[in-house]
Design a protein around this nucleic acid. Structure first.
Length: 291
DNA sequence: CACTTGACCTGTCCGC
DNA sequence: TGCGGACAGGTCAAGT
């Protein structure tokens, strides 16, 4: 579910809500992949720890504590991190939340703070996880060892993307841009949106694309993800932000979940859904001509 | 090494 | 209304 824009939206919310709060305890409901490598008594390492910052790298959230430990979370397909408690901009935000009373049956973890605030990790499919790691070891996670640069950072240029995606010259272009070692954070929604905007068919091999076409894909991916962050991300079914609210990017999408609807460039052409490398894929067959 | 496929889970939707 | 099967936004392990 959550891709870079969704995780970044959650990060921005948590960055407003969590710092300076002190953790008290944690309840683990049912989260088999969480705390696999944590110290034996997680609570002992969480009790009295104050949140100092909330960071993001790729699709991973990092909540830094003042104890030299960090809570590290991956939401995978259906994870949510939802905050409940009094805020400096007032209570009442939870009233327009998409999620109801918490905990609910998808709640896997609940972190309680000394001031009564609570942070819920909900995850219908249990693919996601939360780890507690020494902050200095976060960057040593295997995933971080191979992940590519952040596409929305100024210093990440199209040529960095081109150099990395060329390592996958034999692959079709869609699975190549979903590869997190090329650039971080692109998932199924923004892959389809970027390829439509770049007028590139997802099944074309990377080797059959000119550098200029690859550059266009990168620029369009950055544009759609930046717009999505402005819109609070894409809510299809599960995704909500740190206050439990949905994002509105899909109202602006050109192809994702628009099968059977008119292409915004060719009104007589319907968006078609196909399967590419095992993933549902949305294209305009006129904008994006097959290889 | 590069590429593809299946597995991890639960819930929902669609056709019979 | 019930039931089986396909499918869902992400990664990883194992296969070729």
């Amino acid at each position: 579910m959550p891709e870079l824009p969704e995780v970044e939206t959650v990060r921005r919310g948590l960055a407003e809500l969590l710092p300076r709060r002190t953790a008290k305890d944690v309840q683990v409901f049912d989260s088999p992949k969480s705390f696999p490598n944590a110290p034996r008594d997680v609570e002992q390492f969480l009790y009295g720890a104050e949140v100092v910052a909330v960071r993001r790298r790729a699709k991973v959230l990092i909540i830094d504590l003042d104890t030299s430990y960090s809570l590290v979370a991956h939401l995978k397909m259906t994870g949510q991190l939802v905050f409940r408690g009094e805020t400096h901009f007032g209570a009442g935000h939870p009233n327009d939340s998409l999620v109801g009373q918490l905990p609910d049956r998808s709640t896997r973890l609940q972190i309680n703070f000394e001031d009564g605030a609570r942070l819920f990790f909900n995850d219908q499919r249990k693919f996601g996880w939360v780890k507690l790691l020494p902050t200095s070891e976060v960057e040593n996670l295997p995933f971080f060892k191979k992940v590519g640069p952040e596409p929305l950072e100024e210093e990440t240029k199209p040529e960095h993307f081109i150099e990395r995606i060329r390592r996958r010259n034999g692959s079709m272009v869609k699975p190549a841009i979903l590869d997190q070692s090329v650039v971080a954070g692109i998932g199924n929604i923004y892959a389809d949106e970027a390829l439509w905007a770049a007028k590139i068919h997802p099944e074309i091999r990377v080797r059959d694309l000119a550098d200029e076409q690859l550059e266009t894909i990168f620029i369009e991916a950055v544009k759609v993800m930046a717009l999505s962050i402005e819109k609070g991300g894409s809510t299809d079914r599960n995704y909500v932000d740190a206050e439990g609210k949905r994002g509105s990017y899909l109202e602006f999408a050109h192809v994702f979940r628009r099968e059977g609807k008119a292409c915004h460039v060719h009104p007589d052409q319907e968006i078609v859904k196909i399967r590419v490398a095992g993933r549902g894929t949305h294209i305009c067959p006129v904008c994006q001509t097959a290889p």
